[in-house]
Design a protein around this nucleic acid. Structure first.
Lengths: 340, 340
DNA sequence: GTGAAAGCGCTAACAA
DNA sequence: TTGTTAGCGCTTTCAC
């Protein structure tokens, strides 16, 4: 049976010392109007009584929480957990707590959580839009409450006052296509994600423009518009390809997971990349370099992205006006696409 | 220029309606003493004025935050982010916020963060001990403040009043050894992690006991006591093995990452699992089934673990006294160890 | 250099 | 059924 000590407040310290609470408060803040002898005394007593400031009271008084909310589609996805890790690192350094919640890609859940985040616990929000979200107006409420918002990766510019940090998906996709071209590929297909999501839209645009610039005409069935981006989608696409008369010599998948499914399915049919079909993905998931063949992909610097998003948000909270950030992605060529 | 509306409080509603704040407060809480007409009126006005309750004020008043703190070594590790996902899910369902922080495996950081978590923002803490931690007495402070603590995976029973949820590492390891034995392996080595960490200690014990029960004598250099558990460690161990006169026919690695390093290094030397050496890991990381050969491992049900930890903690906060939980692990046999 | 008092937004005794 | 009041723990004007 551990005796729960009652929490000690500045009043307890004040009483013990026979001074007023405000003196204690000031001493603890190293206020100039307090004598050094008094300061020492107060600090020692605080230490001795195991005093911990109550941050909730502080928040209420100051109207500042030193906390940011993070809203992501899923916590347990390498990309997002890596971003969160970056956020936490930066936030911790600047004395901020991080409150996380996940939308599970659901629009309804996202609305609820934004509601909860408007209830005064956080000074700002970092979010990435759920795949189920088409109308982003629920994000506006934050601005109405004066809560700054940073969107990362899956962003929307339709939210007034929003700040964004993104990777240049267009450039990343463009480079993938260039690379496949350099490997001798000409019939380059693309598995695209839902087009209401910014990143997948930009990757498709990068693909299209690169193809055009390279003088390659995109056939009518060269682009697959996926509803989801799971491994099964990649498997299905390979099966579909096997039934085609005119097969592609490369596929650029908008996600590593889809590409992974494709590689697995290819193996099942005795096909190998890049010999039978060059394959590239996007996101540089950790498994990319462990699988066989290793997977060509695009690094998004997710950890850095998180750090930048947090910095941006906290700077904004501190009254600055940070500019949007676009991170330059990096093409990482691996076995799945390197013809020699 | 968006006009930041000033936040509306119950006083604003009260004023508008010409009633007192307490009436509004009660109406909003659906208190029985308020007439249904009044309730309707208050609720409509609240809606109209876009009122959001201030949860910070609520916390201060009630001395309850509806928030739990989560302290893990790393956010961006599949195991931990999966646990966190489970925690968030359960917490959200029960109306709790989740505050995350990471110790980066550092003892000092863990101390600091526990200090921060004692500052009244959370009603309870879920944590997994940093690898750098040998003395766990810093966890005691939480109990002193009446903040319940659940430790998961890497636990310590030396913390008074602590609750734990773990996977039965001993059993998991035991089964791995049994399985390798059934595959015909007799010279089964073990790569162990730092022994001050509960999970690695228990896995080693499971290994030792299984070997004994199977009548296999463990040679003096069969157990490698690793300081770290990274891929490099696995690579190094393979190189060491290659220099041995009497080689093992199987290695049980206490971590999938070490096993992964081993498989990669083996490939480099033209060796393949399980033909030349059967390999098994622990944790069932997602990449286990994608790599070649796929890796035999032990599933820990991390997502469930998170949910259970959160349930346990919140039950405790609600005044119940939950019992410790031990999750039964599951051996997942894959190519790396299946002789046929 | 220090204290008294107000107040952040809310709830809950106590009164009426 | 409703209003008044105190107070959660802290900071900060204002007065001394």
């Amino acid at each position: 049976m551990t005796s729960k000590k009652k929490k000690v407040s500045i009043y307890d310290i004040a009483q013990r010392l026979g001074v007023s609470a405000s003196t204690v408060s000031r001493a603890l803040q190293d206020h100039h109007s307090i004598g050094s002898e008094m300061k020492r005394l107060v600090r020692e007593t605080a230490e001795e009584m195991d005093y911990k400031p109550n941050r909730v009271a502080l928040s209420l008084k100051l109207g500042k929480n030193n906390a940011i909310g993070v809203l992501v589609p899923h916590i347990n996805r390498n990309f997002f957990s890596s971003v969160i890790e970056g956020i936490e690192q930066e936030a911790a350094e600047r004395g901020y707590d991080v409150l996380i919640c996940q939308s599970n890609e659901s629009y309804v859940r996202e609305c609820q959580l934004l509601g909860a985040l408007s209830q005064g616990k956080v000074d700002g929000v970092i979010a990435s839009v759920a795949a189920g979200t088409r109308d982003v107006s629920h994000f506006n409420r934050l601005a109405q409450y004066g809560i700054p918002l940073v969107l990362f990766d899956r962003v929307s510019t339709e939210v007034p006052g929003v700040m964004t940090v993104t990777v240049d998906d267009y450039r990343g996709a463009y480079r993938v296509v260039e690379h496949l071209y350099e490997q001798g590929c000409r019939r380059i297909f693309h598995y695209a994600g839902p087009q209401h999501v910014s990143v997948w839209k930009h990757r498709l645009e990068g693909y299209c423009d690169a193809m055009r610039d390279l003088g390659l005409k995109v056939g009518r069935d060269w682009i697959v518009y996926g509803e989801t981006i799971g491994r099964e989608d990649g498997e299905r696409m390979i099966r579909d390809i096997l039934r085609m008369r005119q097969k592609p010599d490369a596929v650029f998948f908008t996600s590593d997971f889809v590409a992974l499914g494709a590689l697995v399915e290819m193996k099942k049919h005795g096909l190998s990349a890049p010999r039978d079909l060059a394959v590239a993905g996007f996101a540089n998931e950790p498994f990319d370099e462990w699988i066989t063949p290793s997977l060509t992909s695009v690094e998004q610097y997710s950890y850095r992205m998180g750090g930048l998003a947090a910095k941006m948000l906290i700077d904004k909270i501190d009254g600055e006006t940070p500019a949007d950030i676009v991170i330059e992605p990096r093409l990482i060529v691996r076995e799945s696409s390197e013809k020699r």
